[in-house]
């Protein structure tokens, strides 16, 4: 409430204990290579969408693993599914499938179709 000309700031901290990591767990179960990501950023470097929009698959991986699902859901539809990221990933992550499952799961958990 803004009673005195200012309001409380929204905490930026990732509160790991309060977050829901079930989406990440589900992705890891369906696409085990998801676990192998070391956040090197090769996928994001080569990404068509990332060159023009605020989209980084590396960042989305981190957000999902920490249970920051809202933040991930907001960005995830910018991917054009070209698949270049699979070619460059040094850890053999099936990046396209990770993104696919994430989209599917997030659209369900958010209660409306996002695809």
């Amino acid at each position: 409430m803004n009673k005195f000309g200012f309001t409380l700031s929204v905490p930026r901290v990732i509160d790991y204990d309060k977050n829901d990591r079930s989406v990440a767990d589900l992705i890891a179960a369906k696409e085990p290579t998801f676990r192998l990501c070391i956040e090197c950023g090769t996928c994001a470097a080569t990404c068509t969408a990332g060159n023009f929009t605020d989209f980084s698959l590396r960042e989305i991986n981190v957000l999902l693993r920490r249970g920051e699902n809202e933040a991930a859901a907001e960005k995830i539809n910018r991917c054009m599914l070209c698949g270049k990221c699979i070619l460059v990933c040094p850890r053999g992550v099936n990046t396209r499938n990770v993104l696919f499952i994430a989209r599917e799961t997030l659209s369900k958990t958010n209660g409306h179709e996002r695809l």
Partner: peptide, 14 residues
């Protein structure tokens, strides 16, 4: 700065 006081308050609240 009055508009920034929420930031100060938020730290105490934490």
């Amino acid at each position: 700065v009055q508009a920034n006081r929420g930031y100060s308050l938020s730290n105490s609240v934490k």
